[in-house]
Design a protein around this nucleic acid. Sequence first.
RNA 1: AGAGAGGUGUCCGAGUGGUUGAAGGAGCACGCCUGGAAAGCGUGUAUACGUGAAAGCGUAUCGAGGGUUCGAAUCCCUUCCUCUCUGCCA
Length: 423
Amino acid sequence: MIEIQIIRQSPELVKQKLSVKNFSDLHLVDEILQADEERRAIQKQLDDIRSRENAIAKEIGVLFKEGKKDEAEAKKAETVSLKEESATLTNRFAETEKRQFDLLVQLPNLPCDLVPKGKTAEDNIVAKQVGDIPVLHANAQPHWELGKKYDLFDLELGVKITGAGFPVYKGKGAKLQRALISFFLDRAIEAGYNEVIPPHMVNEASAFGTGQLPDKEGQMYFATADNLYLIPTAEVPVTNIVRDEIFDEKQLPIKMAAYSPCFRREAGSYGKDVRGLNRVHQFDKVEIVQIQHPAKSYETLDSMCAHVESLLQALELPYRILRLCGGDMSFSSALTYDFEVYSTAQQRWLEVSSVSNFETFQTNRMKVRYRDENKKTILCHSLNGSAMALPRIVAGILENHQKEDGIYIPKALQPYTGFDKIV
RNA sequence: AGAGAGGUGUCCGAGUGGUUGAAGGAGCACGCCUGGAAAGCGUGUAUACGUGAAAGCGUAUCGAGGGUUCGAAUCCCUUCCUCUCUGCCA
């Protein structure tokens, strides 16, 4: 949620930035300002009346104590009209406040100055491309064929048990999953992140805090009996750990890493996008989250990107880094870098990580602040990134490291798998 | 899931209708004292919104939401959570 102060101070700049994100309902900005003005005007009146009510109540209290019952009863009459007025104003205030909130929540985050204009994925900027695309042997196969060939995962079996998009990992495929999770977590811990194991279901307040609600409701699985959402990413429970907290400036940054399964309904996805492990409803991911001082958050974003990059290098995968254009960025983000691994057998890039700075968009919703040297409370910045999402990494490893005689496990991963080759 | 108890500030803890944003204590910060420290003494120590250049002032907040009342932390209703006992269970 954009801070109202920013909209109040520079509505035109806000509109201009929103249009970089391809957001066209700019009239919302004016409506917000109008509601804001109205709200403040009502609050002034309301506070004034309540102040008078309070004063009279106190006087009545004193009169009763002094035993002046008649005077006290007379005073009561004075409050009648005030009570009516304050009741009306209270309603109007609540309405206006809600109207402002409902509008405010519809605005996506403002992109930072580095975000390129653009509408679709085509307009993203390739910031960096590393690693040669391997030349595969003649019988090279896509990962779903390799999964069958080496009995690593079974999608049909998942259909039987649950439904489409719920893979069953088997044998060395299962071990590879576990190895990657441990590897990613250990690397995060080495980089100073504190490991947490969060709940895999969240309440409405948490889903609101990170920006999943209200607009992305349909993307999450919802347990109606208990009003809980299955998490689409560990970002949601992990970032909410600091909800409503006020930190000492010295405590920043807060660095947390978590492994969790992720559940996504992925309504509307189809075709070659969903082949094999390309897009599934349940997958594993290690997520890194930081809560940082506003002045340092972009430095932190760079360091998080460097961390993800080091993982891709350790796994010996060809990758590229994209700086997302305004139109392709998520609702909550101010700047996002996507990491893609080249799927050689499919001849396409697969997104394996997304690292974002949300600035105050999430922390404003969650009220995550720090206290500066003047004891003022100021919103922190929040950042997160996948480090990393497993299925497409698995796809990348299987496809890029396949040889005639089997699939080679990158050296860095061998201590975790306990084998150096899948045959 | 059933029965009972309870949810107050950073923490402990008082408070069952009247100047209570909230006693007291601990902690923390600053100052005095000290050669230095401890002890002691003094001062300060919530958040949000509104208003103001600022100091400040106003309003709201004692799990959450609603109600009674001139007035609610205190009474009533709803709801969430915690603890104890019983049941069930990895």
